[in-house]
Design a protein around this nucleic acid. Structure first.
Lengths: 243, 243
DNA sequence: TCAAAAGTGTTGTAACTACACCCATGA
DNA sequence: TCATGGGTGTAGTTACAACACTTTTGA
C-alpha cells in the first residue's frame, strides 16, 4: 500500500424537509416536482446542499424552508429527524442528507409564484397509499417524520404548531385526528386537553363563531411537555377473548 | 464572480457512540481517553471517521463498536441519535458526526487488552454532575442519548437490552431506576410490567437464586412496543396548592 | 429461626370511556 | 324553530399508588 497518511473520504451534505400542515382536516406534505436530474419530474421533499463550509446544518434547513417553501423558520416548528446516509441513495455520489421535520399552521396558501413555484401541498394519504411515489429515499424519510409526529403530539404540545396563534379545541382535535388517522370523542377530548396543566391558555371571553355555538379560543406554548400525556387509544382489537 | 458551476462543499463524516450499560445498579457510559490531538488526554465518546466512500453510516457505527469497544453489534441494541454538525465543533475542520445510542447488557467486562485498551466504563453521574468533562460536543450528545433512553424505556422494551438474555423482574426494575434516576415500588412494578401484553415471557419453572426467595426468570423481545406504556411517575411537586 | 428478597391482597383515588343531555348561535 | 356544533353531568370501569402481609429461600 502507498506510504501516505490516510485521509477520510469526503461526502456531500444535504438537508431535506418534511413539512406538514393541515388542509381541510387532512394532513398534507409540501413536495416539489424536480426540475433536474436525477428523478427529474418526480415528486421529492424540498431540500438542498449545504451552502458553504461554515453553514450550520440547522441554518441550512431554515434557508431551504425559506427558499423552497417560502416559509419563515421563526414562525413554525422545526426539528431534526436524523441522518440518511445509505450508499447509493443518490445516484450522483456519496450524499448524506440530514432530514428535518417542520410543522406549519394550515393557513399559508400553497406557494408563491416565486422560487417555490414548483412546490405544492400533497395529501399524505396519496403517498402512504402508494398512489404517488417519491424520489430517492424520501418515502422512508416521510414515514419517519409522520411517526415522529404521531408519537410527539402525545407527550408535547406539538399539535398546537399545526394551529393558528389562537384556536378552538375542535380545531386542535382535528389535528390529533388527522395525524393519528382515527376519530376521537369530542366531549372527552374537550375535557382531557383542558385538564393537562399549562397546555391550553384560555383567552378571556374571546370566541370563534362558525356554525352553531361559538367556541372558546385558546393559545399554547408549542414546546410544552404534556404531563400527563394525551395517549392515543389502543386499536379496537385490544382484548381478544382467550378461547 | 467566476464563471464556473457551483459545487457543494465537501464535509468529513464521523460516527460517535453513546454506549450505555448497568454496572452495580448504576448507569455507566463507555469513554475513551484520546491519544491524539485535538483534546489529547480528554475523555471522549468512542467513534471515528467513515472508512471509505461506500461504507454505510450504520455499518460504520457497528465497526467502531467492534474496534473501539470490542462489542458485537448483532448482540446489542443500536440506533441512530442524530447528526451533529455545528461548524467549529471540531477544530480540525468541517466534520459532521452521526451519533448513535447503544445499549449493552452489564456483563461484558470493561475492555480487552486489545484495540479498546483506552476504553473504560465511567459512571454517567460523573459526567452529568460536571465532575468530569468531555471532548468536543460529546457532553451534549451524551445528554441527548440519556434523554432518548429515558423516554424510550417508557414505550418500548428497550430496558431489556440492558439485561442478560434471561433476567428477573428485580433486575429489570434496577434498569428503570438507574435510567430514570429514582426508585420505584417493587410490588407495583412487579405487577405493572407483567400486565403489559407480550412484554415479558416467563421461562418455565426456572428461577434465579440469590439471597432470599428465588425469582422467576423472563426473557423479552427488545423491539416490542409496550401497550400500555410504563410511564414514569410525575415528580413529587405535582400539585402545588394554589396560593 | 431470622434476614432478605419474591410475590399477593386490599383500599382509596385518579383517570378514562361511553353516552345522555343541555346551551348558544346562525339561518 | 331547527340544525349545528359547543359544552356539562354522570355512571361504570380500569389503572395505579400506597402499603400491609405472606411465601420461599440461604445462612
Amino acid at each position: 500500500m502507498p506510504n501516505e497518511i490516510w485521509r477520510p473520504p469526503p461526502v456531500l451534505l444535504t438537508v431535506d424537509l418534511v413539512i406538514l400542515t393541515l388542509r381541510v382536516s387532512a394532513l398534507h406534505v409540501l413536495l416539489i416536482e424536480r426540475g433536474i436530474e436525477p428523478y427529474k419530474g418526480s415528486l421529492a421533499l424540498p431540500g438542498g446542499f449545504i451552502a458553504n463550509e461554515n453553514e450550520d446544518v440547522f441554518d441550512a434547513a431554515c434557508r431551504e424552508l425559506r427558499e423552497e417553501a417560502n416559509l419563515d423558520a421563526t414562525e413554525l416548528h422545526l426539528e431534526q429527524l436524523g441522518a440518511y446516509g445509505r450508499p447509493g441513495r443518490d445516484p450522483r455520489g456519496r450524499i448524506v442528507s440530514v432530514a428535518h421535520l417542520a410543522i406549519a399552521p394550515g393557513l399559508p396558501e400553497p406557494e408563491a409564484g416565486t422560487d417555490a413555484s414548483a412546490a405544492s401541498w400533497v395529501p399524505v394519504e396519496d403517498i402512504t397509499s402508494d398512489r404517488r411515489t417519491l424520489a430517492f429515499d424520501h418515502r422512508q424519510i416521510l414515514e419517519d417524520g409522520l411517526e415522529r409526529a404521531r408519537v410527539k403530539i402525545e407527550r408535547t404540545a406539538l399539535a398546537t404548531a399545526f394551529c393558528a396563534p389562537t384556536f378552538t379545541i375542535a380545531e386542535l382535535q382535528r389535528v390529533y385526528e388527522a395525524v393519528w388517522g382515527f376519530d376521537l370523542d369530542p366531549r372527552n377530548f374537550y375535557r382531557k386537553v383542558q385538564s393537562v396543566p399549562d397546555f391550553l391558555i384560555p383567552l378571556g371571553p374571546d370566541r370563534r363563531t362558525t356554525k352553531g355555538r361559538p367556541a372558546r379560543l385558546f393559545r399554547a406554548d408549542h414546546h410544552q411537555e404534556l404531563r400527563p400525556p394525551i395517549l392515543r387509544p389502543l386499536p379496537p382489537n385490544r382484548n381478544e377473548e382467550a378461547r
